[in-house]
């Protein structure tokens, strides 16, 4: 690798490159602001009286009121507190299921030899491309016959069966990068595959396990289609379904309450983003680049 900076400065005079960098920053800052403006506006709208929401484009409310939060929270027959608990239960169980089941399968694909390995691996990759609509209706029929409709089981149990093959793929890529000598040394010491998985591979794979955990939390939290199909009674609703019912129930009348609950529904995602930004961004960059 040659030095980038040296090459650039010898071509351009100092002040021109400073000007160029100021212009680039100005452009990026303006663009960032435009990108975030709708979200910031929604945040400020949630603190405004409803009649002011539609007249103002500014981000600063003329008067700050928090009334819309309790109004939204208790705006439906069942409170948003219940929806948050439901969403959290489903998301946490999904994280556990995905990490456990996908890491087991990934360990087999990355580290063990068995007949038909390439065949199963190809099928696993094939399911990445399969739109879930193709399995949707028979799965619904199956869960209906099991009496699972209107419970969280159809949303959670498949995660314990590693149906999110994307995470298997992600983990296989990572496990393959762990030196094989470590397994071999452990095997020489008489370790069973189970101990190698538990004591060698998993402790060395915390970054990829965390990435998978965070992404499965986010995807489950945001999932709308699954709960829409499987959850019928309002007591079982997730936050996303709660928001949908809020639109239907209050129509256009209680925008500030709707915005307040929308902001709260984004909060867990936002917090995860703040704390695990690196993992999320590296996760995307590495899966993209293999």
């Amino acid at each position: 690798m040659t030095d980038v900076r040296a090459a650039e400065t010898e071509q351009e005079p100092q002040d021109r490159s400073i000007l160029r960098s100021i212009l680039t920053h100005a452009l990026l800052i303006a663009f960032s602001f435009a990108m975030l403006y709708p979200i910031l506006w929604m945040l400020s709208a949630s603190f405004r009286p409803t009649d002011e929401i539609f007249s103002s484009t500014s981000l600063i409310p003329s008067q700050v009121q928090v009334r819309s939060y309790p109004e939204g929270w208790f705006g439906l027959r069942v409170s948003f507190g219940q929806f948050f608990v439901n969403s959290m239960v489903i998301a946490v169980l999904s994280v556990i299921g995905n990490v456990a089941a996908c890491s087991l399968a990934a360990f087999a694909f990355a580290r063990l030899n068995f007949p038909w390995k390439n065949f199963w691996f190809a099928l696993m990759l094939g399911t990445l491309m399969l739109p879930y609509h193709v399995t949707l209706i028979p799965q619904y029929v199956l869960f209906l016959n099991l009496g699972w409709v209107d419970t969280i089981l159809p949303l959670v149990v498949p995660k314990f069966m590693a149906t999110d093959a994307f995470f298997i793929f992600l983990m296989v890529q990572f496990f393959r990068g762990i030196p094989k000598e470590l397994d071999e040394a452990a095997r020489m010491d008489g370790c069973s595959p189970f101990r190698i998985y538990w004591k060698v591979i998993l402790p060395l794979s915390l970054p990829v396990l965390a990435t998978a955990a965070i992404f499965s939390f986010l995807w489950t939290w945001d999932d709308f289609f699954g709960p829409l199909i499987y959850l019928n009674s309002m007591e079982d609703y997730t936050v996303q379904l709660g928001l949908r019912s809020f639109i239907d129930a209050t129509g256009q009348s209680n925008w500030s309450g709707l915005f307040a609950m929308s902001i709260l529904s984004l909060l867990p995602v936002f917090l995860l983003f703040i704390f695990f930004q690196r993992l999320l961004i590296d996760g995307i960059a590495t899966t993209g680049m293999k």
Binding site: A105, F114, L123, T135, P138, T163
Partner: peptide, 21 residues
């Protein structure tokens, strides 16, 4: 042993993906 590791995925694949498809 490999199939023990693979079991959750394999069961899911057969019961929730291939069969339903």
């Amino acid at each position: 042993a490999a199939y023990v590791f693979l079991f959750p995925w394999l069961a899911g694949f057969l019961i929730l993906t291939a069969g339903p498809a």
